[in-house]
Computed example of a mutant assay.
Amino acid sequence: MNLPSDVVEFMTTIEESGYQCYLVGGAVRDFLSDKKPKDYDFTTNATPEQVEEIFEKTIRTGIEFGTITVIFKGKPYEITTFRLEHRYSDGRRPDRVFYSDSLKEDLSRRDFTINAIALDKDQNVHDFFNGQIDLQNKVVRAIGRAKVRFKEDKLRKMRAVRIACENGYDIDQDIKSAIKVDPSLEGVSMERISIELIRIIQSHQYARGVRLLFTYDLLMEIFPCLYEIILNMENKKKYYDTLKPAQRDLYLRFYLMLKPLNNTEAIEKALRRLKVKKKIIRYVTMMSEYDRIEDIESLIALVTKAKEEDLEKMLLLDEYKRKNDECTGFVKDCREGKRAMKVTDLEINGKIAQEMGLQREEIGRAFEQLLKRTMKNPQQNNEEDLRKMLEEMTRNS
């Protein structure tokens, strides 16, 4: 496996300007594991200002920490100057950074040994902390003492779980002990926590990820109500087993994880606390409502406020549950356009209703009634039957 030509050219451009440049982080980990990296991050002894002089288009994404983004051949590459860091008062970011001229010093500040390996443009490996050994043994291990690394940035606790679940790695005992002693994520923004949690949920070992978050008490920091419920479960294994067969759909997996909260309002509250995107809240709560439907009347009320994508999520939940009942058939009909879902799907319009003597304020209520009837009996969604129903409503009003 070779580095992409654009990446080599990017590194060569910096070296020809008189500076060092190395590929670092997850890209190196992936490359050495024969996986295609999703993105590429670099480190250099050039200062951000010197990097700006080399390239035409740059963005000062984290200039205070020595980081800028270079747009090279239409692709964004993040590059950071060799640096050392001084104290993390807030448990999130360093109070001060100092530029360094040493690659080893720069790598020493990183979180895990497998993330502290550097690669030059000729694919020579620079590994000062035995990261390759841990990579071969599939172990997530901290550089130095784990509790010190976690004190610097508390989110590293979740990152350890995420990397382990994405790659099928074990977690070193020092990391386990450090998290168990102090699982706090205090001071870390919910936005940063949600990014790591979503990646855990989307990983190959989703069920294991949820179990590890509970075991190390991190779930108590993220979803305290869910943590308490799992804590009191007589059969925790049964809960984890329900997560294992879940398709790799973020929304379904989120719902199954939060299902023990046992009502839609509690699930929505938990998601809002996490500050996830509105789309996640919509789909997950829609699944929750659908999972509690007991009759067609309730389903009609739910479907009338649904969009086509919501129907797909309902059917995905049924597929997971291996359910194929009357409600499933109803939702399939709606998705395939065999049942009216909205007033605008009716084969009659407001002008006809006015001609039949209905006042404007009456038409809305009348059409809602027509929609409910035709959802139950889709064959009645034709102008003749709808006229008859309107006439009946007019006589009874």
Rank of each mutant, 00 (worst) to 15 (best):
S5A: 12
E196T: 02
E52H: 10
I267V: 12
A142H: 05
K57D: 12
E196Q: 15
K342H: 14
N130K: 14
R156L: 12
K372A: 13
R248T: 09
R60F: 00
D120F: 09
E336D: 15
A46H: 04
I200F: 01
L197N: 00
V125H: 11
R109E: 13
R395C: 00
R373H: 10
R365A: 09
V181T: 15
G74Q: 02
N130H: 15
R339G: 03
V140E: 01
E265R: 10
E368Y: 12
E56R: 07
K338Q: 14
M190S: 10
K279A: 08
L119V: 13
S100V: 12
R156E: 01
S194N: 08
L302F: 05
T44M: 03
I68D: 02
G337N: 12
G131W: 04
I71C: 03
L311V: 06
E105A: 11
I267F: 08
G62A: 02
G364A: 15
L32S: 06
L212V: 09
E347R: 15
A160T: 08
S108Y: 10
E326A: 14
G209P: 05
I114S: 05
G168I: 07
K376G: 02
R387E: 13
I363M: 11
V276A: 05
N381V: 07
L231C: 04
F214C: 00
A142L: 01
M190I: 00
R208C: 03
T81S: 14
E347L: 14
E308W: 08
K151A: 13
T47S: 15
K342G: 03
R156K: 10
L316M: 14
R335H: 14
Y320S: 05
V303A: 00
F330D: 02
Q380C: 10
N396S: 15
Q380K: 15
R60Q: 11
L32E: 03
E16P: 03
K36L: 12
D295L: 00
Q173M: 13
G66K: 01
D6K: 10
E383D: 00
K342S: 11
E297S: 13
E309D: 13
E326I: 10
Y216A: 03
D30L: 03
A340Y: 02
L317W: 06
V148R: 12
K351C: 07
E9T: 14
I348T: 05
A27P: 03
R322E: 14
D39V: 11
G337V: 09
D295T: 04
Y19A: 09
T328P: 03
L274T: 01
I348F: 04
S100Q: 06
T215F: 03
Y169I: 09
G66W: 03
R199C: 06
K237N: 15
K36M: 11
M393N: 04
V303R: 00
T69E: 07
L315R: 09
E78S: 09
A116F: 11
F367L: 09
R199E: 15
V125F: 06
E268L: 02
K180T: 14
L258G: 01
F82K: 07
T113W: 06
A46G: 06
K238W: 01
G25F: 06
F112W: 09
A246F: 07
T12Y: 05
I54G: 07
T242R: 05
M393Q: 14
S108N: 14
